[in-house]
């Protein structure tokens, strides 16, 4: 299954599921990453990690490791 980490710069997708086994999953949900939301990969850091995603009208930087639990 594809995850938010597989998004290319400028590409968007709808969240299908959040892997709730991941320790950061609750925090991600609190930032608004919930199933049904549209996210877009807006920017990447110099080393391609962390990545900046747009969700619910705001920008949130997360690590790729964390992006992996956002299923798209």
């Amino acid at each position: 299954m594809k995850t938010a980490s597989d998004l290319k710069l400028g590409e968007n997708a709808i969240i299908v599921d959040i892997d709730t086994n991941h320790p950061s999953s609750r925090r991600l949900i609190e930032y608004g990453f919930t199933p049904g939301q549209r996210i877009e990969l807006v920017n990447k850091s110099i080393f391609n990690d962390p990545i900046a995603l747009s969700v619910r009208g705001s920008l949130v930087a997360i690590r790729r490791k964390e992006a992996n639990c956002i299923k798209i």
Binding site: P23, Y31, P50, L59, A61, R63
Partner: peptide
């Protein structure tokens, strides 16, 4: 490892 980096820009 529960290291994480989630930060609103």
């Amino acid at each position: 490892d529960d290291s994480s980096f989630i930060l609103e820009l």
